[in-house]
């Protein structure tokens, strides 16, 4: 067992290296101009001259060769600088710190019902194997599993927000905003 753990641990750096390489290569597939769209507003992209495009590429290091960029990226990651999140519009480390507590809280809230109801349903299904209860539970799980998030989300929104107007909202929002 100890040998196994040690073996896995020794493999870890190799796996991390592989992952970084794959992630980085995926970004490269986009091409430098596509990457540029993440830095410049589409309206100005329409209007920029070729010279200006080069300037922006230079500023963000997009015109350097992939190897140099990879090394630079790994170097800063090793120093704890995960870079700038284009979506979150803040440093990646900060974005993680901001979001992590809420994520954990939500996961915890979600886990207990999942275990409780899930195990109970499972037991019921097993006890009434191939009876109507089993079928019903199976249909319920399959529908639940395959329902697209965005449709499900809209239904929830409609029922609880538009029709019922429930929820002890203030407290949670206040917590999230902090």
């Amino acid at each position: 067992m100890t040998a196994y753990i040690i073996r896995r641990l020794l493999l870890l750096p190799l796996i991390i290296f592989g992952v970084t390489l794959i992630v980085f290569s995926m970004m490269q597939l986009l091409g430098e101009d596509q990457l540029l769209a993440a830095y410049v507003d589409p309206n100005s992209l329409d209007k920029m001259s070729a010279e200006e495009l080069e300037m922006v590429k230079e500023k963000y290091g997009l015109n350097e060769d992939p190897f140099t960029r990879y090394v630079k990226w790994i170097e800063s990651v090793a120093h704890g600088d995960l870079g700038w999140s284009i979506v979150g519009k803040e440093p990646v480390t900060k974005a993680i710190i901001h979001r992590l507590p809420s994520t954990i809280e939500l996961t915890l809230y979600a886990i207990f019902p999942i275990i409780g109801i899930g195990v109970w349903l499972g037991v019921q299904a097993a006890l009434h194997r191939n009876k109507w209860q089993d079928h019903l539970i199976r249909i319920f799980s399959i529908v639940g599993w395959s329902f697209p998030d965005f449709v499900f989300g809209l239904i929830i929104l409609m029922v609880f927000y538009s029709w019922l107007g429930w929820f002890p909202l203030e407290e949670l929002v206040w917590k999230l905003n902090k």
């Binding site: 939500l106 979600a110 899930g118 929830i156």
Partner: peptide, 9 residues
Amino acid sequence: MKKLLVVLL
């Protein structure tokens, strides 16, 4: 279930 909570949020 997790889905639901995300939507609730």
